[in-house]
């Protein structure tokens, strides 16, 4: 259980504002902070990790106080057990993949298991400079997990990757989270990512949390009372006579959907869409 209730003066796109963040996160959960650049998402993560000090407030993790302005408590970064995956990965250039993870590890016997889990066994003796973005990302994740954190903080971890790699790593992250059950907070400005990975989303705007809920509640238009709803990504938009055929990727599947001109005219490859149906009953067959 994470409780953050802090005030911090920050510089945003619309000038200096007082950031108020009140966040409650269940242990083992996977939540996200969503918002525009400069909304204060990264600041919340830094406050939580202890890399930045708030001006006022309280931060409590599972009953332990990490920060309390009134009682002058401020647990230093290195005692907080907060795994942080940085946007630039921050791998130590002087160490190999294995040494990076070993440096962080609490339990040396887990090092090989972690390397294997992120699929870096073949490359474990390489230095970070020789790795691709996706590979660095994997090492950064394994390294953060090696320190056995109570909370894992991911600051736009997939921002610098291409769409395919992002997709693959999102799936891997989901699997790893389900396996280890580490409380995870993801900073993202990608709705698809938020939908795919997290079960609770905090929307931030100018330093204030404006909406909280499941990704469905927060992002989908509530006027749609669909019986079936999926989010997918548009892969291709083709015109066929007076209709459009959309090729969509939904989860791991790729399928075709027919769309009218009014539905399809502002769609292009890469867009996130909600696919829903109301009037039909789907057929179900045992497989």
């Amino acid at each position: 259980m994470i409780e953050i209730d802090v005030v911090k003066r920050i510089k945003t796109a619309s000038g200096e504002v007082d950031m108020h963040a009140k966040v409650d996160i269940e242990k083992g959960g996977f939540c996200s902070l969503f918002g525009k650049s400069g909304a204060g998402k990264t600041t919340v993560m830094r406050l939580l990790a202890g890399l930045t000090d708030p001006d006022d407030g309280i931060i409590k993790i599972s009953g332990k106080t990490w920060y309390d302005k009134k009682n002058r408590i401020n647990v230093p970064v290195n005692k907080r057990k907060c795994g942080f995956v940085f946007q630039d990965y921050a791998l130590f250039p002087n160490m190999t993949v294995r040494r990076n993870i070993e440096y962080a590890s609490v339990n040396k016997s887990n090092v090989d298991m972690l390397i294997d889990m992120v699929g870096m066994t073949e490359l474990k003796d390489r230095k970070p400079a020789t790795l691709s973005g996706g590979q660095r990302q994997r090492v950064a994740l394994a390294r953060a997990l090696a320190a056995e954190p109570e909370i894992l903080l991911l600051d736009e971890p997939f921002a610098a990757l291409d769409a395919d790699m992002r997709n693959t790593l999102q799936n891997e992250l989901k699997t790893i989270h389900d396996k280890l059950g580490v409380t995870t907070i993801l900073v993202s400005h990608d709705k698809g990512e938020v939908f795919k990975l997290t079960d609770k989303v905090y929307v931030m705007d100018d330093g204030v949390i404006t909406k909280v809920g499941s990704p469905e509640e927060v992002f989908t238009d509530n006027t749609i009372s669909g019986k079936f709803k999926f989010t997918g990504r548009v892969l291709k938009v083709e015109k066929a006579d007076c209709l459009y055929i959309l090729t969509l990727s939904i989860g791991a599947e790729v399928g075709h959907v027919v769309a009218t001109h009014s539905e399809a005219h502002d769609l292009s490859a890469g867009d996130r869409v909600l696919v829903y149906t109301k009037a039909f009953n789907p057929s179900v067959r045992k497989i």
């Binding site: 202890g50 970064v77 290195n78 005692k79 907080r80 921050a90």
Partner: peptide, 15 residues
Amino acid sequence: LPLSLKEASYTLGKS
């Protein structure tokens, strides 16, 4: 030296 290297080390529990 990028600041994030030091910060990463601190978050990994190092003094």
